[in-house]
Design a protein around this nucleic acid. Structure first.
Lengths: 344, 344
DNA sequence: CGGGTGTTTGCATACGTATGCAAAGACCGG
DNA sequence: CCGGTCTTTGCATACGTATGCAAACACCCG
């Protein structure tokens, strides 16, 4: 850890007070929304502040108000394009509310729960948005017990007491099953997300249950671990079976794009003629002409809105009951899967 | 803006002091690296802190030390995959140094310099990493003048006094020109980044100057504005010329991938048979088999290391002279451009 | 044992700010 | 003009912490 020198001097409220010939508390009141201050005083102080280049120190304020206006964002990695997009939107939405995101990256390895928890505590963040696939329930629980508002983004949870915003993954998986069956597919396979991930389990569950109910049980499930390389291996495994599948539902787009590349470029297969592919997320790349991926759209904007709204509610009333919000997204039909006959 | 209630009570150093039967300053010293404290005292205080769940408040500390351990990250958008990757690496590197990134997103529109500057001041960030394409020189200059360490990431600057880390864009453009000429291309075009962007200008300059020196002047330059849609339009424009180019150097991969899709899927052309494409960045998608893009690799890891190192130096000695670091990256030859004969 | 030197500890204060409270000021009505 | 009521202002204090300084303690050597 670097050892920096002491910070240079900065303009304080006391300087502004002196310049305007008023008290420090008047200066504070001018910059505090809702405080009682006359129009004359307001103008006088603001002019002095402008002259001196003064801005209130949010962090000093936080000692009194107990509010830092900082939201901790816990995220594993950013190479799945779903997350950069979501973060951009989260940041914009929170900036509108006067908050900023402080990033805590966990990387792909087993999360060091103690370290992340301590760092979140260090900064007295007003709340946490957790968008990390390897987020342990333990961390979320500890944060919640320490009184921090927590919202899981695109993460579900088996534990009560933690708020979460997801798309309706069960319904999404079901929608894909319906669509593929109507397209005449008979040998259905799934490349799953990650066994510990509830979003991945829910997508599989919706898909599997619907197939079963239609008398077309799921033939294969292979583990993709939300990783491109693993997904390619899973695709090779599936297509190497004596009776290969004619459609594969892949648990997210990030993997689905890799599966398509593998099928076409490594295995010399055609998509959708030889095998249909459906993904989940509708990341920007899904719409690129080279892929033209049929996929369930995660309604990122609405998920972001719901997450920010829930976080604001928790910040306002920390003892508030946790909620789980599931938001429906449509199936976006592009060119990677054969169409149901009544759709041509 | 939400109006949150007052924060709940938290464990303080005074509580730990009481629990351990020592002074508050002893507690502080135990958690301050380099402070003089006996092993016995250290153990006693840490045990009490552990029992009570105490963590020092970084923000309260910042009032004394003048150090927040927060770095402001100014970024426009995250849909160019170069930036998510860089941010992930920046975050990891800074976490190693005990810092965290606070995000300030500017969006794609004309940047509101006053707002961003004020918000950066509000949080008393220890330094700023600016990775925004629409970052105005004015903001960087104002921050620097206000005493904040600033490092431009993948941004150059025409103004002195601001540190910057880029790849060697001129050399990169030159490398592309050499490569394409050796591949027998005769009609060279460029889809440029953004007229106000020095990285874009430097890439064009390296490309153009080398072509000119070789007696093969650049035929066309079209503006892509670092935007997929604009890049596709530029590609259409170029290929619609009476004498279309046989090679296009695109100022970044984000646009190059869109150009490839447009050429193949909209214009029915073959890449590289009909027209070679070379990009810049080597984002993850460039290596995907559907694209297999030949491109200049921006050495993200080394750029991140250089940026963090420079930022740490500036934090330690704010009056330090600004530096510009240019890091070479290789040309990564894949399948989107015809090879020089001596390369087959 | 006493003196010299180095280490450790607590006191008092400061960092930049918000806020409760009492006093002063402003305004209105009788 | 006076009394009542509302608004505004400054004082004093608190938030959670680090640090200069002086006193106490510990250790070593002659």
């Amino acid at each position: 850890m670097s050892e920096p020198t002491r910070n240079r001097r900065r303009v304080t409220a006391a300087d502004v007070a002196r310049e305007a010939g008023v008290s420090q508390s008047a200066v504070s009141r001018v910059f505090t929304e809702g405080a009682s201050v006359s129009g004359r005083m307001d103008a006088r102080v603001r002019e002095a502040a402008e002259r001196l280049g003064y801005r209130p120190n949010v962090l000093a304020r936080s000692l009194i108000t107990g509010r830092t206006r900082i939201i901790g964002l816990v995220v594993a990695y950013l190479d799945n394009p779903f997350y950069p997009d979501a973060i951009e939107k989260l940041s914009a939405a929170l900036q509108e509310e006067g908050y900023h995101l402080l990033i805590f990256t966990t990387g792909r390895t087993e999360m060091d729960v103690d370290r992340i928890f301590q760092e979140l505590m260090d900064y007295r963040v007003d709340g946490i948005i957790a968008a990390s696939i390897n987020l342990s329930g333990d961390l979320a629980k500890r944060c919640r017990e320490a009184g921090m508002p927590v919202v899981l983004f695109n993460r579900g949870t088996d534990q009560g007491g933690i708020s979460a915003v997801t798309s309706d993954n069960v319904a999404g998986g079901r929608m894909v099953a319906e669509f593929l069956l109507r397209g005449g597919h008979r040998r259905l396979a799934h490349i799953a997300g990650w066994e510990a991930s509830s979003t991945g389990r829910d997508r599989l569950q919706g898909f599997r249950d619907h197939l079963k109910g239609a008398g077309r049980p799921l033939m294969y499930v292979a583990d993709g671990a939300y990783d491109r390389h693993r997904a390619s291996e899973a695709a090779r495994f599936l297509m190497g079976q004596a009776v290969p599948p004619d459609a594969i539902f892949v648990a997210n787009d990030h993997m689905a794009l890799a599966v398509m590349d593998c099928l076409r470029h490594d295995l010399g297969l055609r998509v959708p003629e030889d095998v249909s592919i459906v993904g989940y997320d509708d990341v920007p790349m899904a719409g690129w002409p080279s892929y033209d991926l049929t996929t369930v759209r995660q309604p990122t904007r609405r998920m972001v809105e719901a997450s920010v709204a829930e976080l604001m509610r928790l910040i306002a009333a920390p003892a508030r009951q946790a909620t789980t919000t599931r938001i429906d997204g449509p199936l976006v039909v592009r060119g990677s899967a054969r169409l149901p006959e009544d759709r041509t």
